[in-house]
Write a protein that binds this DNA or RNA. Structure first.
Lengths: 122, 122
DNA sequence: CGGCATCCTGGAGGATACTG
DNA sequence: CAGTATCCTCCAGGATGCCG
């Protein structure tokens, strides 16, 4: 198929590309993703692994990721119920670009902080 | 130097890596970046190029990018004053990981939308 | 254990008006 | 032209309590 949209157009407010990025790059989603890439985890495992998240936000994050096909949710009918979240094959493809971002911050954070110091002096 | 932090640690709330990503991946910053990568531009050029942005938000975005060393700001003392914004060498290094993100959405948006349809049926 | 419903607050960001 | 100042609204997300 043909790719007609420019990068700027794909990033416009309301564009599907931009919306998808917002649902995948937010604070909690990225952390959930990193953890599930290591190993599947249950709801409260994730809560403990991500200290600052509230139950409400974690639920919303997991639902959104599940809806987008990034994570899978399986209910294990023990009593009490257990629920396991796992990364999907689609979710795994996200790791590469996200890690590229992390690599960028690692490579350039010092340079950014130097720029901040210069800016704050003036 | 040694890199000790895990990806999850770098993404934790309050971590410098995460803060930097937030200041660089937000709605307006990404669009400003894309436009300045094409060519330097003046304040009102950017306003026109990014229809949904308000003057207040654009100012805040440009200040933050300037502080982080991602864009440069030069005042041209004509009357009335002209101000030109341009991408810096550091800013240019951001393009690669950001484009990787865009490439990911292009490659997988259809698959995501299929997952959404499935989810919304249930 | 893994949620959902309700209430509530802070702060991001829009609208508008003004200025060097 | 390129902002700044002020006001004001809105809603993401925290706190709390309840339930299958």
């Amino acid at each position: 198929m043909t790719e007609t949209a420019t990068p700027a157009e794909r990033l416009a407010v309301g564009a599907p590309h931009r919306e998808l990025l917002e649902q995948v790059l937010d604070t909690w989603s990225m952390q959930v993703l990193e953890h599930l890439c290591e190993a599947p985890a249950r709801f409260n495992d994730l809560r403990r692994a991500i200290p600052a998240v509230t139950a409400k936000s974690l639920t919303a994050t997991l639902r959104r990721l599940e809806r987008n096909g990034i994570v899978g949710r399986s209910v294990i009918s023990t009593r009490p119920v257990a629920v396991e979240y796992a990364i999907t094959p689609l979710g795994k493809t996200l790791r590469e670009p996200v890690d590229a971002l992390l690599a960028w911050t690692s490579a350039h954070l010092a340079e950014v902080e130097a720029a901040r110091d210069r800016f704050d002096d003036a």
